[in-house]
Measured scan of single mutants.
Amino acid sequence: MASQGTKRSYEQMETDGERQNATEIRASVGKMIDGIGRFYIQMCTELKLSDYEGRLIQNSLTIERMVLSAFDERRNKYLEEHPSAGKDPKKTGGPIYKRVDRKWMRELVLYDKEEIRRIWRQANNGDDATAGLTHMMIWHSNLNDTTYQRTRALVRTGMDPRMCSLMQGSTLPRRSGAAGAAVKGVGTMVMELIRMIKRGINDRNFWRGENGRKTRSAYERMCNILKGKFQTAAQRAMMDQVRESRNPGNAEIEDLIFLARSALILRGSVAHKSCLPACVYGPAVASGYDFEKEGYSLVGIDPFKLLQNSQVYSLIRPNENPAHKSQLVWMACNSAAFEDLRVLSFIRGTKVSPRGKLSTRGVQIASNENMDAMESSTLELRSRYWAIRTRSGGNTNQQRASAGQISVQPAFSVQRNLPFDKPTIMAAFTGNTEGRTSDMRAEIIRMMEGAKPEEMSFQGRGVFELSDERAANPIVPSFDMSNEGSYFFGDNAEEYDN
């Protein structure tokens, strides 16, 4: 993207840094990872977990959730003011799984939030270390993106479920800051804005008074975040219109849905970061690795190297396929839920299948599930090659597409044709070009129609051997075009429920 120079890199967003050079960025990201790792080690000690239990991804998720809940100030305040039966607002906890007599047992633990905050700050040299908290939120978000298709949420806001490739980060909490905003897809931002506008339509006082002023500035800020994701002048001009509207209503909703559809071809720039579970960072720190000293990046080879040398386990339900569970977590670790499966298959070195073909449910185990038949197995999170994460949407291309997802959002900077089903997408653009945004709409449609099938995206960008740390010898991959490109292809993934 041309304006790259004016933006802070995501590592800076990730670490609240002012302008830093590459070495400083690597050190501050490393410091953040160190903090998460030290916190995780301490929690495993508190909970008396064995090494194996500490490497269980379900335990990692519970521990991450506990610290996120302990620092969720708004919710904590709300819980104190609106006490609900049987919930102690000062405590947080969740299921911890232990191996007892050759069987997995679930144990519900409860801790004072104050105590968890103390352990977290102690692991982070006394700081609140917001960057580390956001990092864990993005890992949870990436896992949700890989596990669930947001059909219901899309339909509720009037969008087409086939636009799911635009929904990265749709389950990120509001408090995820600049680093969170960077990884949100165009569809996620559109959905947040539509929800806001709908509230304004239904509630006369939404934009009024002292609160209304705050609401208005939040609305304009979200519009600017979305505008910054678009790469064409016409899309940005249309966002200006939406932002400046005196009284946002149905016309703005129409414009936003139009823009979301246009992003299936004229893709937005959305950041991709490899955020790993805390149970990967903990053992690495415990083994003596100093992330701050060595430096770390979320968008280069580092996460690949770390996963190459990590042992992570997962509980497996009786009829689940461990290899499929591994694929789910591998995609989440690489922030690749909406990437082209052919690119992923090449990088991973084994075939990556669409969601609907995987015999696996989510990673988390519900409290009512029976533990008797639970097994555990090693997650295979290694890769054959590594590639640089991208934040450009890439230019655009036609490809055989599917009944489910009709476009992709690249996660890796790797040369390819970008699949999208042009006739299906263009069919949504018939007729409606009147109104105050008509010239911009016409211009956007013209650009979409001009998108050429034979153009290559990320020209000359390749993948790298894991021994090639400096990215000196790019390998331009070859793809098996007979395979499906979309992950949520004609899909039956479970729906995400809060």
Rank of each mutant, 00 (worst) to 15 (best):
H272W: 02
R195G: 01
I201W: 04
Y281K: 06
H324Y: 04
M191A: 03
T146D: 10
F429Y: 15
P161H: 00
P419G: 11
M426Y: 00
V352M: 10
L328V: 13
G169A: 14
T6N: 01
A178C: 05
V29K: 01
E11S: 14
F346M: 15
A271E: 09
V476G: 12
Q308C: 12
T232R: 15
P95V: 12
A271M: 13
L108D: 01
G268D: 00
E244Q: 07
Y281D: 05
V183P: 04
A218R: 04
A237L: 04
G460D: 00
Y496N: 08
D480A: 14
N142Q: 08
E107M: 07
E107Q: 03
G300T: 02
N59T: 13
D160Y: 07
F464P: 15
R75A: 08
Y487E: 02
G431L: 13
Y289M: 13
C223I: 07
E18V: 15
A403F: 04
V299C: 05
Q399C: 10
T378C: 05
E449K: 12
Q327I: 11
N202H: 15
I347N: 08
M32I: 05
N395D: 01
R382Q: 04
E80L: 08
Y111Q: 09
S413C: 08
A401Q: 02
S467E: 10
V352A: 09
E494V: 06
K227F: 13
A234M: 05
M456C: 12
T146L: 04
L166R: 00
R118E: 13
N202Y: 09
T350F: 15
G393A: 15
L79F: 09
Y52N: 13
L358M: 12
P322R: 02
S274W: 09
E14D: 12
M440R: 06
N202R: 03
A153L: 07
R400Y: 06
V299H: 01
N483E: 05
K90I: 14
R204C: 06
A251E: 06
G54F: 02
R213Q: 10
E339A: 03
T23D: 00
D372E: 15
E114T: 07
R195L: 05
T157I: 15
I253C: 01
E11K: 09
S245K: 03
Q231G: 14
Y97M: 01
D290I: 03
K229Y: 04
M239S: 07
N144Q: 10
Y10S: 03
Q327A: 02
R99T: 14
P354V: 11
D112K: 04
D128S: 10
